[in-house]
Design a protein around this nucleic acid. Structure first.
Length: 227
DNA sequence: CTCCGGGAAA
DNA sequence: TTTCCTGGAG
C-alpha cells in the first residue's frame, strides 16, 4: 500500500507526461490579460476569445480607453462571455482604479510588497483571478486553483481534509515544484475538461484511474451497485 | 447561500 | 428538458 502523497505524486507525474501544454500566455499585454482573466470566470475560453475580439474591434483595450467607454458598449462587446452586467461594471471600475491608483499601468500592481492583496482589492478579482494574473503575467511560482483543479484534487484524494481555496492550493503546491506550477495549472484544467469531467468522468480512458480513489466508486456505480 | 447569463452538453 | 461553465460579491 502506498501513502496518499506518493500516490498523488505518481498520478501528477503521469499527467505531466500525458498532457501537452503550449506557452500561449507569453508576451501578452498585462491589462488585456487581466481583463481576459475576469472574462474567463465561469465561462470557456472560446467565449472569452470571442468577447476579447469584439472588444478589440470596438475600442482600444487599455485602462484609459475602457475607463472612458460607455458601459453599454463594453457590456455589448463582452456579451459572449456571460455574466456581462457584472463583468462590464467590474472591468470599467478596474480600469478607473488602475488609472487613479497605478498611473494607468497594471505593471505597477506587481511592484508593491504584497501584489496579491492589491489585486484582491480590485472589484471582480478574487483568489483565483488574482493567482492566475500573478502566475502567468507576474511570473510568480504559484498554482491557481479553478473548479476543474479543485474537482480533480478532491477526486484524487490530494485535497485531503483541505477545505476552501487556500487549503487546496497549499496542498497542491506542496506536491508540485515551483517551476512546474504554471504548466500544471494548464495541464490539470485540460485533464479536468477532457477526462475528469464534472458530470460523467471518463474513468475508463483515464491514465491515472489505477491511482484514483474515486475511480473505483465510479466503476461500482456504473455496474449498478448502489452509491 | 444565491444571484448573475446565454450557449452547450447531457 | 436540466445542468454546467478557468468565480466573485452581496
Amino acid at each position: 500500500m502506498w501513502g496518499t502523497s506518493e500516490r498523488a505524486r505518481m498520478a501528477l507525474s503521469i499527467l505531466e507526461e500525458s498532457i501537452e501544454v503550449e506557452d500561449w500566455f507569453k508576451g501578452v499585454d498585462g491589462f488585456e490579460f487581466l481583463i481576459a482573466t475576469i472574462l474567463s470566470q465561469s465561462t470557456n475560453y472560446k467565449n472569452v476569445r470571442m468577447a476579447m475580439e469584439r472588444l478589440r474591434a470596438k475600442l482600444e483595450i487599455s485602462p484609459s480607453s475602457i475607463a472612458k467607454s460607455d458601459l453599454r458598449t463594453i457590456r455589448d462587446c463582452i456579451r459572449p462571455a456571460g455574466l456581462f452586467n457584472q463583468k462590464s461594471r467590474r472591468i470599467k471600475a478596474i480600469a478607473r482604479r488602475i488609472l487613479e491608483g497605478y498611473g494607468g499601468r497594471v505593471e505597477n500592481l506587481l511592484l508593491n510588497d504584497d501584489p496579491r492583496s492589491e489585486l484582491l482589492r480590485l472589484p471582480g478579482v478574487g483568489p483565483k483571478t488574482a493567482d492566475v494574473f500573478l502566475a502567468f503575467y507576474g511570473g510568480f511560482d504559484i498554482l491557481p486553483v479553478d473548479t476543474h483543479i479543485s474537482r480533480v484534487a478532491k477526486r484524487l484524494g490530494i485535497a485531503g481534509r483541505a477545505r476552501g481555496y487556500e487549503g487546496v492550493r497549499a496542498r497542491l503546491e506542496e506536491l508540485i515544484p515551483p517551476h512546474k506550477r504554471r504548466r500544471f495549472h494548464i495541464a490539470l484544467i485540460k485533464f479536468g475538461r477532457s477526462i475528469c469531467k464534472a458530470r460523467a468522468p471518463y474513468c475508463h480512458e483515464c491514465p491515472i484511474a489505477e491511482l484514483c480513489p474515486s475511480a473505483e466508486r465510479f466503476r461500482k456505480t456504473a455496474r449498478g451497485d448502489r452509491r
